[in-house]
Amino acid sequence: MTDQSLVRPEFIRKTSATKSYGVVEKPLSLPERIYDLNWVRKCFIIVILAAAWQIYASHLNNVLLFPTLSETFQALIEGVRSGGLLKRAWFSLSLLLQGYALGLLFAAILTGVAIGTRIGQDFLETLTSMFNPLPAIALLPLSLLWFGLGNASLIFVLIHSVLWAVALNTHSGFKSVSQTMRMVGRNYGLSGISYIAKILIPAAFPSILTGLKIGWAFAWRTLIAAELVFGVSSGSGGLGWYIYEKKNQLEIPGVFAGLLSVIVIGLLVENLIFRAVEARTVRKWGMQS
């Protein structure tokens, strides 16, 4: 038996009323809240990079090799004012959107068939493993041969760059939808298109969104590269052609301005459009942190 003095006494306490706590919830301080904002941190990084550029370039002091940020900005403003740059950017973008939309359409058809049938799935998997590693730009010579010197051949190449990335991601997204969720959908009596639209697509949305982003980046890169190689069509060229032209005229700040516009458009699409879509979908649904 244990010694009486070693037995610890029992006790029961009344928990304190909520009001007597010092701090239960306290708003964060202003600097903390500002630092929490994603875009503030990103802008900060961009400012640092820009400053580094400016300092290094003015130290180098060689406009032909590496113009400063301010010179690049001047060229950019010049380009915008003369109307050339914006028109070129719009030309590239409109071409890109056409190719992107068509690529998405084909990807939707292919994955839709792949979901429905086993042979369709094998077909898609074989095609993606064949064509996904093939750089779209490598098809440009063929495309020019088939579709001639025009927008059609650029769009063909764009479709190729978008299609496989989107199809691959969407398909793997569909495949990873949990068995439970599938059973829930079928429990409601959903089948065919409504099953795909109401269960599979939202359930696979994180992967689909990744596919859309990758497809966008591939398409944008491919387009600029294709324009650099292939240049002008039907009287006006895009941003790639602008860069190429400026290089030929040895207007290196203009080249940098062209590159900067490519970067800025990429950043805007990624950070405004895709981010907004993310915030309204996968983040809100707790499918992505």
Binding site: S178, T180, M181, M183, V184, N187, Y188, G189, I199, P202, A203, F205, T281, W285, G286, M287
Partner: peptide, 16 residues
Amino acid sequence: PDRMMVFQEFDQLLPW
């Protein structure tokens, strides 16, 4: 829907 299922898994609710 005449035989509704309730599953064990938490992901039986549609997260969206």
